[in-house]
Amino acid sequence: MAAEKHDVPPAAVNANLTEREKLEIESSFRNEIVATRHRRLRRGLMFNLIGVLIFLAVWEVLPRIVPGVNIQMFPPPSGVIATLYGMLADGQLAAHAWSSLKRVAAGFVIGSSAGILVGLFTGRLALLQSMSDPVLHGLRSIPAIAFVPLAIVWFGLGETPKIALISWGTFFPVWISTFIGVRDVPKLYVQSALSLGAGPLNVMFRVVLPAAMPFVFAGLRHATAVAFVIVVAAELVGASSGLGYLISFSHLVFRIDMMFVGLLALGVLGFLADAAFAALLQRLFPWYRAERS
């Protein structure tokens, strides 16, 4: 609608446009496009905000009007915000978030590196694929959080079991999507590379991996979500820091408001991690969608 609003006469009507008039039309056309884009963006953001406000309002009202609900059990935003502020001010929240983030980052790096390597080799070598398929798919079918007790038995209560669990859990989605990306790399790319003199390793790391990168990235994105699930599960039992610990501790001391702060922090971190991935995907692989469209 907005795009149709600029009432510039079509060039054909006036064949004697001077160069200057042409430039003027072009510049006003460009300005119009930019203005429209900004308007859309602003409108989008405004509605985002309205959605959040409605959510908060409902949350604020609900515990007060629904009969039988105790404000202690279901604290409204006004109750949570004071706690949030206190925990931000004394650095408690940041400390817990930081512990969790460190674990997530370490496990994510280990697990996804392994996933990429294994996916690359199983995707390229049929023999390796056949050998590894039953075992990997079997292990993948076990929910990673089922390994929490085992990790504690094996690695104790320190950082190791948590990082090991996250590595384990992030490995699988990254492996699967790398494998699919590698397997489906157009044959033409590989043939081109070979006829340009590339050896097997160069084909693998300079052609197949970059061609599969958008898939790998989708796996990495999925893996971040998995990593947050596992870190919380691992911290609920046998931890003395982290957002999972914070939630479990709030339970023990019956501070539901603190529990809400922990949940809120998890939501924000997960959301930011995912948004960062989405933005990176656009930035790093502009060729990907353009090529396939």
């Binding site: 157009p186 033409l188 790319y189 043939q191 006829s195 590339a198 052609v207 970059p210 060729w287 990907y288």
Partner: peptide
Amino acid sequence: PSPDRGVVFQEYALFGWMTARQNVEF
């Protein structure tokens, strides 16, 4: 296959993640 026998395909076999120059340099 060898660079002695250069191949040009029907479909676009250029590496999408490389610039024209990088493709030629490959």
